[in-house]
């Protein structure tokens, strides 16, 4: 339970960090909060040759209004800061609502917003929520920067579109459209544990109270965030009655997801949870959209 030896660099500027990433490429791992990477190293499941510690990069720890609305979050912002930010609560309430579900306070004190997303754990809350909110990801390397959508960023199990020499430096959460509600729910065996199933929803109503747009994105049911596209397609143009929501939840659980079974929950149980949670979040998001 001790990590293997590695070379350690602690740059204090982003430029220096990007130089290390460029110089060491595949051998290097960026160290953000370390709340997933260090346990993995303790188990020796990960044995990076080089760690580039990003904790000295104060320039990547910020929460500020994004140009054009919404909120812009530096990748090295602690999860606890995001949880406590009034700006996030106002501009990205779905993120605010989700933060307490992430592990425990001790983990959130150290874990970072960008580190969580770049780790892309299929059981993690933020990738699903970021997908539901159409977050945009800014990746930077020594040779320049590029923007990625959530669909582009999350590639597979623990795999993002980041190149070995790239760092995730910023995440922009766009503002919710008018008359939009949101909700997040998950079921775990104990508070703070990995969720058996979780789901984030947004619902936008038109002026006649019908569903104009909806997103329903699951965690823990696949290798990355899974969007229930057939379920939400069935909601478009509908009055969001309990019946319409039930039908959509049924479609989501039966058709949109292909959840794994393991010792924590069988396939059947995960589908059951997926349906129940979909009903709850769609109903809550709809109610919130009506209050808008």
């Amino acid at each position: 339970m001790k990590p293997p030896p590695f070379e350690y660099f602690a740059p204090t500027t982003l430029d220096d960090a990007l130089d290390y990433m460029a110089d060491y490429g595949d051998e290097a791992k960026p160290l953000a909060g370390g709340q997933s990477l260090i346990p993995t190293m303790n188990f020796r499941l990960a044995q990076p040759e080089v760690l580039v510690d990003l904790n000295g990069l104060a320039e990547l720890a910020y929460i500020r209004p994004a140009a054009g609305g919404g909120v812009s979050i530096g990748a090295m912002t602690r999860q606890r800061s995001v949880e406590r930010s009034p700006l996030v609560a106002e501009q990205a309430p779905l993120i605010h609502e989700t933060m307490p579900y992430i592990a425990h306070p001790q983990i959130r004190n150290r874990g970072t917003f960008g580190g969580n997303l770049a780790h892309t754990d299929p059981a993690s809350e933020l990738p699903a929520v970021a997908t539901a909110l159409n977050a945009r990801f800014r990746a930077q390397s020594r040779s320049g920067q590029r923007w990625l959508t959530a669909d582009e960023f999350f590639v597979d199990l623990f795999t993002t579109a980041l190149e070995p020499e790239e760092l995730l430096v910023e995440i922009v959460i766009p503002p919710l459209p008018a008359q939009t509600g949101y909700a997040f729910r998950e079921i775990s065996r104990r508070h703070g544990d990995y969720a058996l199933v979780g789901v984030a929803a947004t619902v936008t109503l038109d002026n006649n109270g019908r569903c104009e747009a909806a997103r329903l994105v699951y965690l823990s049911v696949g290798d990355k965030p899974v969007e229930a596209v057939q379920a939400t397609a069935a909601l478009i143009g509908q009055k969001l009655t309990a019946e319409a929501i039930d039908d959509a939840a049924e479609i989501a659980a039966a058709q949109d997801i292909d959840p794994p079974g393991d010792i924590h929950a069988s396939v059947t149980y995960r589908r059951h949870l997926a349906k129940v949670l979909a009903k709850q979040v769609l109903a809550k998001a709809t109610a919130r959209a009506k209050q808008e």
């Binding site: 904790n55 983990i107 004190n109 150290r110």
Partner: peptide, 16 residues
């Protein structure tokens, strides 16, 4: 307590 905030010391490196 690391800079006054509770953290788990087994998943941090001393060098940090």
């Amino acid at each position: 307590l690391f800079d006054d905030e509770p953290v788990r010391s087994c998943i941090m490196f001393a060098v940090q």
